Simulated assay, not measured.
Amino acid sequence: MPELPEVETTRRLLAPSFVGRTIVRVEHDAPHRYRDTHLAHGRTVEHLDRRGKYLIARLSGEPALELVVHLGMTGSFRPTHTPHTRVTFHFDDGTAAYFQDARRFGKVAVVPAGNYRSMPTLQKMGPEPLSDDFDADAFARAAAAAPAVKPWLLSQLPVAGVGNIYADEALWMAGVHPKQTRLEPDEARRLHAALRAVMTAAIESGGSTLRDYAQPSGEAGGFQFHHNAYGKDGQPCPRCGTSIEKSVVGQRGTHHCPTCQVLRQD
C-alpha cells in the first residue's frame, strides 16, 4: 500500500497539473466508492495537500469543499488511460488525470472542507512525522503506555502516514523490537528520530516500488534499494550480519533483526 513517501511524491508531481485548473467533469464506474464527485464539477483546484496517506485538493467556491483521494493498495495516477483506470478527471484546458487501481481499494470523495466523519482514520490521525507538531517529548509520553509498538504505529494515532514498510525500517534503525510494549524514553526518542530520517530519505528517493506503485510519470520509486529490513528476510542485517527474520505482528508481515532488535521483557 502506498504510504506517506509515495503519496507525498505523488502530490508533488501532480500539483502542477491539478492546481489552478478547473474540473469540468469526473468520470468513474463505482458511485459507492467514488462519492459525490459531481460536486467538484466547475470548481478550480486551489491547492493540493497531503495528510498521512491521503491527498486533499482544496476546491474553489462556496460552500467550501475538498476532493479527498486515498490510493488504497494499488492506486496511482498515470498520464494516460490504462485498463485499470477507475476515475478520470477532465480539466478545462483539455487535459486529464487518470486514477488507476487494479484491486479497487482506493477511494475518492468530495466532502465539506475539514469534515472527515466518513473517513475515521483521517479524522483521528496523529501529527505529520516531518512537522513541528511531531514532538519528541509527547511521542515518548504516549509510547510509555503503548501496546505492541508496530501495530500502534500502523494505527495512525501516534503519527501519520506510517505503514508496513516504513514501520519496519524505522524500528530497525531505532533498534526497537516490533512487539515491544511501553517504550523506555531512550527507545521512544530513537524511534522518533528514525521515523523522521526514514521518511525524509524515502521521499527524496520517490518512495518504494515493490509491486504496483509508480510515480505519476510512470517512473518507479527508488527507496526499495535502500531497505535495511523490510523484505530482507533471510538476508544479513546491514548492521550486525545476523539474518533478518520475518514474522507476523498485528496480522502484518514484519521484518526485524533478532540481534539488533531484542524484545525487552518488563
Rank of each mutant, 00 (worst) to 15 (best):
R58S: 11
D36S: 12
T37H: 05
A64G: 08
G52Y: 01
L39D: 00
A64Q: 08
H41L: 12
D29R: 05
H47R: 12
H28C: 06
I56D: 02
T44H: 01
I56Y: 04
R51N: 09
R50H: 14
V24Q: 08
L55S: 03
A30M: 08
K53V: 10
A30Y: 03
T22H: 03
R43K: 14
L59R: 04
R35E: 07
S60I: 12
V26Y: 00
P63H: 10
P63E: 04
L65E: 08
V24D: 03
D29V: 05
R58D: 07
T44D: 05
Y34N: 05
A57E: 01
G42P: 02
D36I: 13
T44I: 09
T37Y: 00
H41G: 15
G42S: 06
H38F: 13
T44Q: 07
D36K: 14
Y54I: 06
E46L: 14
H28M: 07
R50V: 08
R35P: 12
R33W: 08
E27T: 05
Y54M: 10
H41E: 15
I56H: 05
P31K: 09
L65N: 07
R58P: 04
P31T: 10
R25E: 03
G61L: 01
D49F: 14
Y34W: 13
H28P: 01
D49S: 14
L55T: 02
R50A: 11
H32T: 15
Y34P: 05
L55V: 09
S60Q: 10
D29F: 02
I23A: 01
D29E: 07
R43Q: 09
A40G: 06
G61K: 01
H28Y: 03
E46Q: 15
D36Q: 13
E66C: 02
A64M: 08
L55M: 12
E66G: 02
R43I: 09
L55W: 03
G42R: 03
G61Y: 01
K53Q: 13
H28G: 05
V26C: 06
H41W: 15
T22F: 02
L55G: 02
E27P: 00
H41Q: 14
H38R: 15
E27F: 01
H28N: 11
A57H: 03
D29W: 06
R33T: 13
G52L: 04
A57W: 00
T37P: 00
P31E: 11
H47E: 11
R35N: 14
Y54V: 08
E62D: 14
H41M: 12
L59I: 13
V45T: 01
H32S: 15
A57T: 05
V45R: 00
K53E: 10
R25Y: 07
H47I: 09
I56W: 05
G61W: 00
R43N: 09
D49T: 12
G61S: 02
D36E: 15
G61T: 01
R43P: 03
H28T: 04
I56K: 04
G61M: 02
P63N: 15
S60W: 09
R33D: 13
I23L: 06
Y54F: 15
T44P: 01
R51H: 12
A40R: 00
H41S: 14
L48Q: 04
R33M: 10
L39K: 02
L59S: 07
P63V: 10
I23Q: 01
H38D: 15
K53D: 05
H47T: 11
T22I: 09
T44L: 05
E46H: 09
K53L: 13
D36C: 13
